[in-house]
Design a binder for these strands. Structure first.
Lengths: 220, 220
DNA sequence: TATTATCTACAACGCATGTTGTAATTTGCA
DNA sequence: TGCAAATTACAACATGCGTTGTAGATAATA
């Protein structure tokens, strides 16, 4: 990219569109924009971010190269918006499923994990993309993403911490374990070539079996 | 890169040098070459593969851009050689520590894990690089790397399988568990920003504690 | 010292890249 | 219909890229 300072969408902002005067509220505009994001995601996943050119994206969307900039600010921004698309809803799983209203910490954890995998399974490749390419984002956006990740981890740790005094969990280091669980959740994405024998539900069972051995005070 | 077919080092080959007539056996030649690899590794880790130019590598090594090609065949080859540097020794840990000569499967597993982490800890960033950038390698080299990975996993699974009939391990799906263990070993690299509170030995303890809960038939 | 093999300096090639500017066209609305 | 806003078409820019070729310098060998 030509040096002109980092200009991808800021952390919480809804990514003000690229058009000069366009309010970005038009339905077609949004549709076209999200199409760019989806098509670009496919390409980035398949070929890698650096190996995908704006001209590739233009071809895939049918939008002229130059006009892409009518909808987005930069190539970098596209990447950020891809992450935003699935990473933001992931953060809200805890609230959406009202997990804090479940009284049993074991059920809390199981629900959380099931939903996280269920959700993550729909964005397997995008998660991989996040791991692979997030480094190219400007620091600010990177921070934003890591903050979201940390937020989910702390939610998991919260569940664990609740279960320890209740004697349903037995965990020495809740922070480490929460991190590990979050990390294990990505196994299905990260090592998919070795996970092909398993269907998603099988994987959830295996993973829950795995995790419950680690955290439950009385396994089985 | 200019299209001219994939030309990085083949799977097992010792990467025939770039020089036309040079046998590549000269000590200085090898020294210079491995310096290129090391310096390039640093740059790739810091800036990413695509964001690092041959001119950057030239600057870092003090070798003229054009003359880099006297030592290596292509930019791609450098990446492959970086992976080769640490990935090959990792594969040989099982033999080097004569793990199959240990009779107790629990000690086998513990030794294997300890050594893998101990080794991996020295190449934390390189492992990250492997996860991030291996996709840019030609398929053949990629296969080679995944084969090595699978080899280690199957060694772990071998240990697990030995322990199950001896009733020291209790594992439903040894393949899944072996995969998971291999994956967990990379936690320290992959999520280092969350692992900073832990020293390497602390991490080994935590991880062994974690894994033993999963695999041992009688934890504690 | 003469000759060959190893290494270096330097310039250049050809191409693909992200991005911009602008004029024309279409659309939405009064 | 007429005007303004939204959208498109097209060409161009500037630059950085991986790689090559070659002529000269140095080191090793005899």
């Amino acid at each position: 990219m030509t040096k002109k300072g980092r200009q991808a969408a800021a952390c919480k902002c809804k990514s003000s569109c690229g058009a000069s005067k366009n309010t970005g509220t038009s339905a077609v505009f949004q549709k076209r924009k999200s199409n760019i994001i989806k098509k670009a995601a496919k390409l980035f996943i398949k070929k890698g971010y650096a190996q995908t050119s704006m001209r590739d994206i233009a071809k895939a969307t049918g939008i002229d190269v130059g006009n892409l900039y009518y909808f987005i600010k930069s190539k970098e921004e596209i990447l950020y918006l891809i992450f935003d698309m699935f990473h933001k809803p992931e953060e809200e799983i805890f609230e959406r499923f009202e997990i804090n209203k479940i009284e049993d910490p074991v059920q809390q954890l199981k629900t959380m994990i099931t939903e996280l995998i269920g959700f993550g399974g729909n964005f397997r490749q995008e998660i991989l993309l996040l791991y692979r390419e997030s480094r190219v984002l400007p620091k600010e956006n990177l921070k934003c993403i890591m903050a979201r990740e940390s937020h989910v981890i702390s939610q998991i740790e919260g569940i664990l911490k609740e279960g320890v005094p209740k004697k349903v969990f037995k965990i020495e280091d809740t922070s480490f374990t929460a991190n590990m669980i979050m990390y294990e959740l990505a196994l299905y994405s990260m090592r998919h070539w070795n996970m092909t024998p398993y269907l998603k539900n099988e994987f959830i069972d295996l993973l829950w079996n795995h995790i419950s051995k680690v955290v439950l005070s009385r396994p089985d």
